[in-house]
Design a protein around this nucleic acid. Structure first.
Lengths: 150, 150
DNA sequence: CTCCGTGCAAAAGGTTTGCACTGGT
DNA sequence: ACCAGTGCAAACCTTTTGCACGGAG
């Protein structure tokens, strides 16, 4: 689990954002953000639903989808690109990259300073205005690698 | 449109692959590959279906999905990661990167030599075995940018 | 001639939408 | 008290699957 302080910060920042914009700080939003902030994996909407349904009496899958969509729109969480159908989410908004396993489809984070300095062509590509970038590294995660050699 | 020679090469390579592996070179496979190889965008399975259904009498959506899956398995085309639900495909197998528009969700290619030299940490990340990588650059494409300033 | 590949229809997810109610501000 | 946010159910859309037929090797 991530350090509690990080989760608290995230929640606090979101509380402020809600106040600023007059958004309702509902139990659903709070617990979903709390859950997503405290995990390392990149859960799908459904996995988040499974995780929070015991904490929020009678929460619906629909709400999870809507809350996540709101978070994405606010820039509080990110939708992770991956080559599979399901959308995956993460609360880490610091620039980092993703290790995507070709075998088990898991998505792991990779914070590596060496990759931060990469210069993305800002002007060259047909007038495209660069906002951010992320590297998707595909390969085999350690556990799938282990299985292969067995 | 891409230069015709590129399409021809792609088809020829696929013909050889079929011969080698004893795969059937059906009209469906040929026309779908021809279509995907000749376009610059990153069409969804459905967009390809729309494009080829007039050329292949009575083709079914199912076939398009299955043919694309076959191509991906053979490494002839790639499934592009993007932060939206639908899978997108491309026939360009040379390493390159993607410009993803936050506004219109379009995916454009970016071949930039400066990005080819990037050293991805091969050993650091928890025993992950790196196979390949691709950079997803998010921002605004030129036409969406133009609209915004209007 | 033999199967692989296809078409059809139906199922299986994942995600979105309309509407009425409820809880946060 | 007002209205954004939620729950429910149903719709929607993409993708997958089972089965029988037909065409490529």
């Amino acid at each position: 689990m991530k350090q509690q302080p990080l989760v608290d910060e995230k929640i606090k920042a979101f509380e402020n954002l809600c106040r600023e914009r007059g958004l309702a700080l509902t139990i659903q939003r709070r617990i979903i953000l709390e859950n997503l902030s405290s995990r390392y994996d990149h859960p799908t909407a459904d996995q988040i639903y499974e995780a929070v349904k015991d904490q929020i009496r009678g929460v619906s899958r629909t709400t999870v989808y809507r809350v996540l969509e709101t978070f994405v729109r606010l820039g509080v969480v990110a939708k992770v690109s991956n080559p599979h159908a399901k959308a995956r989410f993460e609360a880490d908004t610091v620039r980092h990259h993703h290790l995507i396993c070709l075998d088990c489809n898991s998505v792991a984070d990779c914070h590596d300073g060496r990759l931060d300095g990469i210069e993305v062509p800002t002007e060259n590509c047909d007038g495209f205005e660069v906002r951010d970038f992320s590297i998707a590294i595909t390969g085999l995660c350690s556990s799938c690698r282990r299985e292969k050699t067995l």
